[in-house]
């Protein structure tokens, strides 16, 4: 079935070591998201799994079989590229059926499969159009259709939604999750957007400079970040991080507290602060405050929180929600 394992997978382009060595086991049917800032090696790692890039050393097992040297098309994986990479000279039908044609599948079988994929993706009326006659969202669907028809053990997505506008992105996110549910196939999804990672993943792999920082479910990462990097990367708005004096009482180098885990009071609290800016989103209000020794902080207030710039407030962290880190940025757990 669709398990994927990386064993000491390493990649260097000449002298530049992009992936120093990654070990990772992905279970069958799992939805795994690789997330990390751009340039950290997510695409490279994904392309190594796809077979589009070879490993400098280490190996890749798919279904327990060593596929390190295998050609991309023999790995039982489909890929959806960031640029969609549709064949511009072929119709939607041609695009979706190309892989099947290459596999030598009989014509009527191809037709049936294409029709089915087109129906699920709402592409039936566009089958004879060329990619350039489609909208961004439709192109995206074609790219997915092309991946689906081959019945792969696993899907690889490289930032598939980054070229879509915000509203469409939310829709497609749901559709891809639905697809995952329906097909039950293993999926690896690359993104630099932690919101996408949090909402879609069974497990998230956080990458930093080609190294895995932490692997875990979205809530594990949210509640127990292993490092400053993960703490800062996961969650929106970002966790407030403070070092020096505010951290001293907690016996660590740095403490972190998420904006949503601070109590606000106009009368009294742990940290006095001055409002600099309030962002009113309706459901929430984000306050950007100057908390003296603690520096600039972001605080979430529920609902419409009326406050003037320059007003004084007091912040109190929920004690159980304080994250502590040592001077190497590693989390300290009691």
């Amino acid at each position: 079935m669709g398990t994927i394992s990386l064993v000491k997978a390493r990649k260097a382009f000449g002298d530049a070591i992009i992936i120093p060595g990654v070990d990772l086991d992905i279970k069958d049917g799992e939805f795994v998201v690789f997330v990390g800032p751009s340039g950290c090696g997510k695409s490279t790692l994904l392309r190594m799994i796809a077979g589009l890039e070879d490993l400098t050393s280490g190996s890749i097992l798919i279904d327990g079989k060593n596929m390190t040297e295998e050609a991309p098309s023999k790995r039982g994986l489909s890929m959806v590229f960031q640029s969609y990479a549709l064949y511009p000279h072929m119709s939607v039908r041609g695009n979706i059926s190309f892989g099947l044609k290459m596999a030598g599948m009989p014509k009527d079988e191809i037709a049936a499969k294409v029709a089915k994929a087109a129906a699920t993706l709402n592409l039936t009326e566009y089958l004879d159009r060329k990619p350039r006659q489609l909208s961004g969202g439709q192109r995206q669907r074609v790219a997915i259709g092309r991946a689906i028809v081959r019945n792969p053990e696993g899907f690889l997505f490289d930032e598939p939604l980054s070229n879509l506008d915000a509203a469409l992105r939310v829709n497609m996110r749901l559709e891809i999750m639905q697809m995952h549910k329906d097909l039950g196939a293993t999926m690896i999804y690359v993104t630099h957007d932690q919101v996408e990672a949090m909402t879609m993943a069974d497990r998230i792999v956080v990458l930093n400079r080609g190294n895995i920082e932490q692997v875990g479910t979205p809530l594990e990462l949210y509640n127990h970040p292993d490092s400053l990097f993960v703490a800062g990367f996961i969650g929106s708005p970002k966790m407030n991080l403070m070092d020096g004096a505010p951290a001293a009482p907690y016996k660590c180098a740095t403490i972190g507290i998420r904006p949503e885990h601070l109590d606000i009071s106009r009368e009294a609290g742990t940290w006095p602060a001055t409002i600099r800016l309030a962002e009113h989103l309706g459901a929430d209000t984000f306050l950007h405050v100057d908390a003296g020794l603690c520096g600039m902080m972001t605080v979430r207030a529920e609902g419409e929180y009326e406050v003037a710039s320059g007003a004084k407030i007091f912040l109190t962290p929920e004690p159980s929600r304080i994250h502590r880190f040592d001077k190497d940025g590693k989390a300290i757990r009691k």
Binding site: S73, F81, Q82, S83, A85, Y87, H89, F98, G99, M102
Partner: peptide, 29 residues
Amino acid sequence: IPGEILEASRMDGASLGKELLYVLTPMAI
């Protein structure tokens, strides 16, 4: 021509000959 399109055809199982004949050449017409 974006290399990703050729890579897509490689994922689709096209051999070099087919990649040249069915993907690259028509795109470069």
